[in-house]
């Protein structure tokens, strides 16, 4: 082996070791979460790191506390609806801002960006009043509606559409395609990775949404996972086995979505740079 190759090999090993350490740190809490779901509360607070035999018991306890399937369904339903609507509406807005620039729109755009900075707690009381006046309390619509127009996503899409060649749009216009047709048929498709990234973002945001659902949801039947977690975590006596299992159940679906979407996401990027 030449010297250069040896150095390369050494560097490669270093690279893999470093990343492996990063992976260990990243993944360890997930392992703990999983092992915790199979342990009793006493074992968890006592620092037991291995898998235990309490999974079934934890599941029974959790079932007794809440209708887990219903909670899961509520969370999936609100999250999917939200993800679909928000990326659609924000993508259109981002496209509008980028490809039809005008002074008025830039002012509106600046407003969008500015409002990213208003803490949600400052908008909560007025928002609650609105939901209450519109008779929308305790509905999933009320969870979804207020945050569909997400300034960050608008910003993200606008940035992304910059890379889409305007000449292609103009060419399509010459061919007689309508503006909306151009957007839905021509522009959206090559931007697959952008949409995947935005979808992951929106999905995570809604899946983990806490403060606002807490405020508007009134009944047990409409609860989402984060609300269940927080009520489990704050009992006088916290059953950590049950809580860990709930955390696992709340986290698994999002990991699955992430893994499947991520493949598409990475593929999209690799594909577009080829």
């Amino acid at each position: 082996m030449s010297k250069e190759k040896k150095i390369r090999l050494f560097k490669n090993i270093l690279l893999h070791l470093f990343l492996l350490a990063a992976v260990l740190i990243s993944v360890f809490p997930f392992y703990w979460m999983l092992s915790g779901a199979t342990n009793s509360s006493v074992d968890i607070t006592g620092g037991n790191m291995w898998f235990g035999k309490n999974l079934k018991e934890n599941w029974t306890q959790l079932q007794n506390t809440a209708n887990v399937f219903l909670v899961c369904w509520n969370t999936i339903k609100t999250t999917l609806l939200y993800t679909f609507l928000s990326i659609l509406i924000c993508a259109m807005a981002g496209y509008g801002f980028e490809k039809y620039r005008s002074k008025g729109k830039n002012v509106v755009y600046a407003m969008f960006l500015l409002s990213m900075m208003i803490p949600f707690s400052a908008q909560m009381i007025p928002l609650f009043k609105m939901a209450s006046k519109a008779n929308m309390l305790d509905s999933h619509t009320a969870i979804i509606l207020p945050t569909i127009a997400m300034p960050f996503l608008v910003f993200f899409f606008r940035q992304s559409f910059q890379s889409y060649p305007t000449e292609l749009i103009e060419a399509a216009r010459v061919d007689g395609a309508g503006e909306f047709r151009i957007f839905f048929h021509l522009v959206m498709l090559p931007m697959k990775s952008t949409f995947a990234a935005a979808a992951i973002y929106a999905f995570m945001k809604q899946w983990n949404n806490y403060l606002w659902p807490l405020i508007v949801i009134q009944s047990n039947e409409k609860k989402t996972f984060t609300l269940l977690l927080s009520s489990l975590a704050s009992a006088y006596y916290v059953d950590y086995g049950q809580l860990m299992l709930a955390i696992v159940l709340a986290t698994l679906p999002i990991i699955i979505v992430f893994l499947t979407m991520q493949k598409q996401f990475v593929e999209g990027i690799v594909g577009s740079s080829k």
Binding site: G96, Y100, A149
Partner: peptide, 13 residues
């Protein structure tokens, strides 16, 4: 047309 694209988000916003 630009405003039409933005309209939905703008209204909600």
């Amino acid at each position: 047309y630009g405003w039409a694209f933005i309209a939905m988000a703008f209204l909600l916003y």
